[in-house]
Design a binder for these strands. Structure first.
Length: 949
RNA sequence: GCUGAAGUGGUGGAACUGGUAGACACGCAGGACUUAAAAUCCUGUUCGCCUUAAAGCGAGUGCGGGUUCGAUUCCCGCCUUCAGUACCA
């Protein structure tokens, strides 16, 4: 029989499922390997052809590793909490759990069609209570922990309480809120329980804090940053305003430095590491205090008397060039500092900046504006009085929300000083053209800088820091751009937060009460009073168990966890086998110690600063508490590129009035007419040629359509866009599988180009891949498609073809160059076809080598070759024997002045002198030299001969 | 603006440490088989010039320089595209 991919693929997919071929054990004599894919959100649109790209790559890798003798964990699951299902629920009233279930079933069917070697017994769904029980449990651990800077790790909050009881908080070095007053053990002991809880909340790794959120009044809901475009909601285009709200936050900043350091130990793509470094945004500098001028202090209220302005700078060396201070308009001291004379001006300015949208702020990035408070601060080293201004180029959220302005060294300060006529003091003899722009050079020697005059940058910095510390006016300080992560959404379809409120303070529910199950609600919208949807749940209150409680009931937290909660630890759940999931732990210690961490993680780079940062954070936290063993969760990560859509267009002719006619003109002739380009379904276009009959049938109004053709064909226009339903450019893997089979789809997606590169989808080359598989099938069959292999000893050429591919595929897979192996398979099969090879010795090994790429056809042939069904996945990858590739002759390219002219067969054992003789006496070479004698001959053994004339 | 990645035939792409640029595949052209079509197979296919043909000559990896016997690969400057980020003191 000819290659019957439909039967073969169905048969083997069924076999693998029935026999649980890829179910993996947490025990094995073989070494372990964990291959993970970023799990999908099951959207209603189903998989398109771009989704499986990474999954195919990881599946090839997983199958290859199995052949190489590894015990491979290769699981799949669903990140099934999320907004689209909730949006759909709001519109239709259908419970998101039902939508999600339907979508998952569809995804599963599509994934099964492609022949992945997933261990489905370990599937996870983040929206499943048995899963989110542990997401909630991790939240509780975070609530019960604080970050100790002395040990540089998270520790139980109970340990902190003992310290407070023994010696207060003077000696505690923690990552915490800033506004914690010092107290002694004695003071602690007399505090009320609520006061204690209030203080502890400032230390906990997850805590409540007032944060600004994107509030959309029209939708009655909070939006994520990426749901807001230019101040309007992406969906619906309603205005969005900034609103302060009490929100759960995660103290990820405690881990900033470890997240940064850890990057050096993991194998991630350099651009991704760079993105994380920028996101963390570590800057080394100094905090400097500027006290307020005495005349001002007299007029201040008692509360502000000991206040000073603290700034953060990365260029403490430029301190003598600081000629004014600038505060963010939101800075807490602005009101106190504003003199009566300046009050009107300052208030007007603050009002102005509040009105400016993000967009406007960005648009006039070059223009600076500000207002003078009327007050002066004292320069800590020179003692001079310098004016204090406010300006919106200083951000309240970064550093201290105040800067010392050094106009000679910083361009924004320079612009500001120029605009408002403030002094620009040169501080280095290397600075140039200060009348035109700032010069931030670190070269040269300092001038106008008292203490450090004549010193270089390297010499000056320690001198300054020491002096500032001595004066108690400053200290070295490291600052991070990264902020603590908001951990809550005012939405329904997410994990409930296992917290109830008593006297306005949050308390955890009992661990034994987990999971706290998402309650039913009548509508998935916020309440009339603006509370999240969970407030609609009836009888959803917390009451303490009878031995502790007194029958009182309390309100639960009404927000739910954000999208990243469930995905920040899921790889550990995969480690637990189905049996172990019954145990009361997120994953048993033995399983974690066996699988340790993910060896290979494949996914999109869009998760660079979200998921991949949060996951590393939770992993480090779980390690601090001793629940997991590795500091980093993902040892190696590969970003697969995006597959873009390739849209096709037809051009409808407009009449003079601009009205559309029913005549369509081919792309090459469209410029002769007035036309409207219309998207046309890419599935009825092949090589840009429109299937006119299919087009006519696609819509009733096209039935009578007329066409102006070129060369008898209708040629469509092409554009690369995102793949989406509305652009009619979605290609579903199902269609490809139906037409060519899963093995062709797998090979073709790899053949398209390097895995990491983004590329538009097109099926132009798919025929070639399909033909290759038929050719491969034919190697095992005679002309009438009877299976036949011979037991004869292969020839040298046959061995050579085989061992070339054995080595090539090994090398390619190890460096994730899957596209090049597909080409090499084609070359190999072409060679063996030319050699009329039918030898079992060759073909059986080739089956094993091709198996990771095309698992179905190889399984079928494996069994036809007489092997047991299902054993191919665990066969041995053939051993490469270099002996088969050794040649004793090589066709040396002979070039003259670097230009290739001819090839010359010369023994590989020949040395330079011998070769020179041979080359110079060659008739063709003589002809090229045209009587001239070469100056020099370059000879690289096995590579090239180059004559220099 | 800054950071990162990438620019190679008509198309997707290959060339792994500086050593035969365009492998492999698509498309296209021509041919075989066929009543015909599909399928399959064979031949050609970077561009330009010259030639009946064989052969030959020249140019060529975004652009301009450089290093080298030799550069798609290394260095300097520039252009374009994509991604991330956005007044970060």
């Amino acid at each position: 029989m000819d290659y019957q991919f439909r039967d073969i693929e169905k048969k083997w997919q069924q076999f693998w499922a029935e026999n649980q071929t890829y179910k993996v054990d947490n025990k094995s004599s073989r070494p372990k390997y964990f291959v993970l894919d970023m799990f999908p959100y099951p959207s209603g649109a189903g998989l398109h052809v771009g989704h499986p790209l990474g999954y195919i790559a990881s599946d090839i890798f997983a199958r290859y590793k199995r052949l190489k003798g590894f015990n491979v964990l290769h699981p799949m699951g669903y990140d099934s909490f999320g907004l689209p299902a909730e949006q759909y629920a709001i519109q239709t009233g259908q419970h998101p759990a039902i939508t999600t279930e339907t979508n998952i079933a569809r995804y599963r069917e599509q994934l099964d069609n492609i022949g992945f070697s997933f261990d489905w017994s370990r599937e996870v769904r983040t929206s499943d209570p048995s899963y989110y029980k542990w997401t909630q449990w991790i939240f509780m651990q975070l609530f019960n922990s604080w970050y100790n800077l002395d040990s540089d790790k998270a520790e139980p909050i109970s340990a902190l309480i003992s310290v407070f009881e023994k010696s207060g908080n003077h000696s505690v070095r923690a990552v915490s809120d800033e506004d914690i007053p010092y107290f002694t053990a004695e003071q602690w002991s007399v505090k009320s329980e609520n006061e204690k809880q209030e203080i502890l909340l400032k230390y906990r790794l997850t805590y409540l804090r007032e944060s600004t959120v994107n509030w959309c009044p029209a939708m009655g809901t909070v939006l994520a940053n990426d749901e807001v475009k230019d101040g309007f909601s992406e969906r619906g285009g309603f205005p969005v305003v900034q609103k302060k709200m009490m929100q759960w936050s995660m103290r990820i900043t405690a881990y900033a430095d470890r997240l940064l350091q850890g990057l050096d130990s993991i194998d991630f793509p350099e651009p991704l590491k760079e993105m994380q470094r920028n996101w963390i945004g570590k800057s080394v500098g100094a905090m400097v205090k500027f006290s307020l001028s005495p005349s001002l202090v007299e007029n201040l209220g008692d509360a502000d008397k000991d206040k000073f302005i603290e700034v953060f700078t990365t260029r403490a060396d430029t301190i003598y060039g600081a000629s004014f201070l600038v505060l963010a308009p939101e800075h807490e001291l602005v009101t106190a500092l504003t003199t009566n004379a300046q009050k009107a001006e300052i208030e007007e300015y603050i009002l102005l900046t509040r009105k400016k949208s993000e967009l406007e702020r960005m648009a006039d990035a070059k223009a600076v504006s500000g207002a003078f408070t009327g007050s002066f601060a004292i320069h800590p080293l020179s003692g001079q009085q310098i004016p204090v201004w406010i300006a919106d180029y200083v951000l309240a959220g970064y550093g201290t929300g105040a800067v010392m302005a050094v106009p000679s060294g910083d361009q924004r300060d320079w612009l500001f000083a120029t605009k408002y006529n403030l002094p620009i003091v040169a501080i280095s003899d290397a600075q140039q053209n200060l009348d035109q722009q700032a010069d931030p050079t670190k070269e040269g020697r300092y001038i106008n800088s008292d203490l450090i005059n004549g010193l270089s940058y390297q010499e000056a910095l320690p001198v300054l820091i020491n002096k500032l510390e001595e004066l108690n006016a400053g200290k070295a300080k490291i600052n991070y751009r990264m902020r603590d992560a908001i951990f809550g959404r005012q939405r329904y379809w997410g994990e409930p937060v296992p917290v109830y409120f008593k006297d306005g303070l949050p308390h955890l529910i009992q661990q034994s009460e987990l999971p706290l199950v998402l309650p039913e609600v009548d509508k998935y919208l916020p309440t009339e009073s603006g509370e999240p949807p969970l407030a609609r749940a009836e009888d959803w209150r917390y009451s303490l168990s009878s031995e502790q409680g007194n029958g009182e009931v309390y309100e639960y937290e009404l927000s739910t966890m954000p999208g990243w909660a469930g995905s920040s630890w899921y790889w550990y759940r995969y480690m637990a086998s189905p049996e172990e999931r019954e145990e009361n732990v997120f994953a048993p210690e033995s399983a974690i110690n066996y699988w340790k961490s993910v060896d290979l993680y494949i996914g999109g780079s869009e998760h660079a600063t979200g998921h991949l940062l949060y996951s590393r954070f939770w992993n480090k936290f779980l390690k601090d508490l001793g629940y997991v063993s590795e500091e980093e969760p993902f040892k190696k990560l590969i970003n697969q590129g995006m597959i873009q859509g390739r849209s096709n267009f037809v051009y409808r002719i407009k009449d003079e009035a601009g009205k559309g006619t029913n005549v369509f003109v081919s792309h090459g002739l469209k410029d002769q007419y007035l036309t409207t380009p219309l998207h046309v379904d890419v599935n009825i276009v092949a090589h840009e040629i429109l299937d006119i009959e299919a087009f006519k049938k696609s819509r009733p109004e096209y039935e009578q359509a007329e066409f102006i053709l070129e060369n008898g064909k209708y040629i469509c226009g092409v554009e690369v866009e995102k793949m989406s339903k509305s652009k009619f450019n979605v290609v579903s893997p199902d269609d490809i599988v139906e037409r060519y089979g899963a093995d062709t789809l797998r090979l073709y997606e790899m053949f398209l180009g390097p895995l990491e590169q983004s590329k538009p989808w097109n099926t132009n080359g798919i025929e070639g891949v399909f033909k290759f598989l038929r050719k491969f099938w034919k190697l095992f069959h005679d002309d009438s498609f009877n299976f036949r292999v011979s037991e004869d000893e292969p020839s040298k050429a046959e061995y050579k073809a085989l061992h070339k591919i054995i080595r090539k595929v090994e090398e390619d897979i190890e460096r994730f160059s899957f596209n090049t192996s597909v080409s090499s398979f084609m070359i190999c099969v072409n060679e063996l076809t030319d050699l009329k090879c039918t030898k079992r010795e060759i073909l059986q090994q080739l089956v094993v080598v091709l198996h990771p790429y095309a698992p179905h056809i190889t399984e079928e042939l494996w069994v036809l070759l007489g092997n047991n069904p299902g054993t191919l996945s665990f066969a041995d990858y053939p051993e490469f024997k270099p002996g088969y590739l050794v040649e004793n002759e090589f066709a040396y390219p002979v070039s003259i002045n670097g230009k290739m002219k001819m090839n010359l067969n010369i023994s590989l054992s020949s040395e330079s002198a011998e070769v020179e003789q041979l080359v110079l006496n060659n008739e063709d070479v003589k002809r090229y030299l045209d009587g001239k004698s070469p100056k020099k001959m370059i000879f690289v053994k096995g590579k090239i001969i180059n004559l220099v004339v």
